[in-house]
Nucleic acid binder design. Structure first.
Lengths: 137, 137
DNA sequence: ATGACTGCAAAGACTTTGCATCTTT
DNA sequence: AAAGATGCAAAGTCTTTGCAGTCAT
């Protein structure tokens, strides 16, 4: 509905999003920009990440360890999520077949707008840390 | 670690979980049990859902519209999630291939413990409501 | 009896929002 | 000048937690 005007803060937020592959939370983006924009407020980061998601310029990745995470790469792809530290890695997509979607959407009457495919487990670093912890105990 | 004792409240919570297919939030479970256990507290529901998840007796489905949702069906399966109302439907699994997991876990050094596969879109009811809204405007 | 479980209320973590002010067009 | 964008702080929502009392083994 509302017209979107350009703003320096939003440009900067999008720039940060596009220059990282860490699938950031709002607070992470905020921390990156505090130095450059000392009066930036966390609320503004939230508002802009939400607006950019609504415009489909970025994507919501989901809530990980209590925080919504975002991704500037809107191409279809899957994620690996570490169950311990929440690190997210990009993976090639493993989509359901057209036939799968077709038959289920007919059966249940829903419309499919997208899919999310994640692997869950332990990242390389956390595997090491857990091994260390077991050694100690 | 800690010994687990049986409790009536936890039994009831698990019973509710097993008798619904709505993939409930903590509050939904709480509301179902308020009449039967007028002194039940929401904190107890949270503690028990967390404990049951840790024991892998139930599963976390993820955060939908701000609330963690749970599922008593621990068999591998996919979900459809309505982007508007948050309804969750069970679907047959569409897992990544063994080869996909094998090659990526080798490449990145992570260990895969599971996968999540969701379709996202609009459920049958929400499709109708949106059509109505468009008619009005 | 021991230690797990619970109710209650407070605290915590994250996100949204109201309002006055500043910017963009 | 009009309307979107922002800072700030307050409010909102969901979840966790400390503590004293209760219950299961």
């Amino acid at each position: 509905m509302a017209i979107v005007r350009r703003s320096k803060k939003r440009d900067a937020i999008l720039r940060v999003m596009r220059h990282t592959k860490c699938h950031p939370s709002a607070d992470w983006v905020y921390q990156q920009l505090r130095e450059e924009y000392p009066n930036l407020s966390l609320g503004t980061v939230y508002r802009n990440l939400n607006q950019l998601s609504d415009q489909q310029i970025i994507r919501r990745v989901g809530v990980i360890n209590g925080q919504e995470r975002f991704d500037a790469d809107t191409r279809p792809h899957a994620h690996f999520v570490c169950n311990r530290c929440g690190t997210v890695l990009d993976l090639p997509d493993f989509p359901p077949s057209r036939q799968y979607i077709q038959s289920l959407s007919t059966q249940y009457g829903f419309t499919v707008e997208g899919h999310e495919s994640n692997l869950r487990g332990l990242c390389q670093d956390c595997k090491k840390i857990i091994t260390l912890e077991e050694t100690v105990s």
